[in-house]
Design a protein around this nucleic acid. Structure first.
Lengths: 324, 324
DNA sequence: CTGAAAGCGCTTACAG
DNA sequence: CTGAAAGCGCTTACAG
């Protein structure tokens, strides 16, 4: 507020309240060994309020070494769309435990560069990086604080959903599966692998793999070819809901009956999922609350230097709508 | 990395390199009054690297008072979806100027509560709060650092896009407009107002207002009624792309020809916009790069205590696809 | 060209 | 029940 960069310090309060610096600190930190008289406490608190005192974080952190910040790190903001709901839950839950959640988006791959977020000393770093590699690991550990993964080994996690997609389609009677992924999906391999395995485990022919191009018209061509080569009803396992949307849009353009001729199942259950044409059947998280509970438990453990529990694989379920 | 919470300090390096603490600091801060011999510098830098030294932020901040963190504050993560692209640009641009962008999601309305993010001393706070009120202003100012708004007075900004929607539909020949908003949209009033004004300025009857319910089937009923009451071609101005998606989905369910019978125009140009059925015509930002440039200039000014320039209204344009 | 010293604002044993 | 003092790790005038 003050332009004149004049920070209100604990000394100002001490002077104002007519007590020593130490007494002020004792009162304000609500130290449990509270041996300060009520009258003094009130005096101090009033002075603090009057002067609009906020303790200066760097000084406090330097002295105590205790941070109450949890930093959530992800590669790009786009991942947030999927986890948005979970992140809000996480932030609330951590708040209840006295921690505050901050985000960092994008990681600097260059270990020689000054570390971004270097002004921050988090208590714990939570990693929402889907496919950790050496560089990202190094980045995370440069904070010098415990790192908690938010998604259990991502490829394995990915495969839980992929398998669910395939088995759902089998149950619905589809014997010909296609896999749809866009070029950018980092988890493509895990997805392909899981669907392939599920096919072979069910004695079904190997799935065809369709690359989804950026443009809707290009996608129409891809699908036209795919359909002409595969005359029976097909089930498409899209790597994410966005890809599923693209496919549904192109199928609508081509007047292909969904799900009769082609069934499409997505993954993620994004907020828009009920609004595709037809409404998207997709994979959603089964029990967000319990997932967050586990994650928070791990963050708290890490903040105390205790060992982490294995983050369980998120349990998933098929959210049945109309596209499959 | 080290479990044994033993922080490597500047003293360790001094000892390792056989010089004084001050010399180490001079070398490491790359002080421009560099009067240290090359040999000494190398010795120090090697020692620092060998010991994996990272300066301890609280100590540095306490001493210098200079933070290089910019904190972006928003109410909910959902807003991020719209601005995702801009936020990534902002983060990159700030990095180029030596600042690091961190996010805080959700604001604590209670001024008596300990301030969240209180471990952080940002240089500047950037506010992505669409409709600031007293509580949010107070929250932002409790950091005690300059606050830069990221969106120029939101209602006015909102109206730029709304007017564009209406005039585009007029140009296309639609004389009957409807306004579609969901209950949660905080900027509804500004949207309604802008469309109404544009209608009256164009000598067109007042727009009808349609509340978009959560459920797709409920929306079908709303639209059925709306269409039976308005037999001529209608243009629908949706408050955001999500709402536009809902309307397009319901219209598809009802087999209503779009845009012949009903044209729909969204706002936001979200990544999925090209994938609605039919592809969504919507309002997009005209020149993100120049917007970010202005915003960054303001952040830099604020960090130096200089006055801010008025953030210009984002210039918008109609992204023409097929729904209108 | 390098080192000894002060001090940023806070907390917390330790005396009194 | 309260105060004087040390010290967290760093930077930067200031001597030498």
């Amino acid at each position: 507020m003050d332009k004149g960069r004049q920070r209100t310090t604990i000394d100002d309060i001490a002077r104002e309240a007519g007590v020593s610096r130490a007494t002020v600190s004792f009162v304000l930190t609500k130290n449990p060994h509270q041996t300060i008289s009520l009258a003094t406490r009130e005096k101090v608190q009033q002075a603090a309020r009057r002067l609009g005192y906020q303790s200066f974080a760097p000084a406090r952190l330097l002295r105590t070494g205790h941070s109450s910040t949890v930093l959530l790190v992800m590669r790009t903001i786009h991942i947030a769309a999927i986890y948005a709901y979970l992140v809000e839950l996480l932030a609330k839950a951590l708040n209840a435990h006295g921690f505050n959640l901050l985000w960092q988006i994008g990681i600097s791959p260059d270990p020689e560069q000054p570390h971004p977020a270097s002004d921050l000393v988090p208590a714990v770093v939570v990693s929402l990086i889907e496919e950790p590699d050496g560089a990202s690991e190094a980045f995370l550990h440069r904070f010098g604080v415990p790192v908690v993964p938010a998604i259990s080994s991502a490829p394995r996690q990915r495969q839980v959903g992929s398998r669910l997609q395939a088995t759902y389609l089998f149950d619905k009677g589809y014997r010909h599966l296609a896999i749809a992924a866009s070029r950018q999906s980092t988890l493509r391999e895990a997805h392909l692998e899981a669907i392939r395995q599920t096919c072979s485990a069910n004695g079904v022919e190997a799935p065809v793999v369709a690359m989804v191009p950026e443009s809707r018209s290009a996608l129409r061509s891809v699908l036209t070819t795919l359909l002409s080569e595969n005359p029976s009803p097909m089930g498409v396992c899209a790597i994410d809901d966005e890809t599923a949307f693209a496919i549904l849009a192109a199928l609508a353009d081509l007047n292909v009956p969904v799900p009769e001729r082609v069934a499409v199942i997505g993954s993620g259950d994004i907020p828009l999922a009920p609004l595709s044409v037809p409404a998207l059947t997709t994979i959603g998280i089964n029990d967000p609350a319990s997932y967050i509970e586990h994650l928070v438990a791990n963050v708290l453990a890490a903040s105390r230097g205790e060992p982490l529990c294995d983050l369980e694989l998120l349990s998933c379920r098929v959210v049945v709508r109309e596209s499959a």
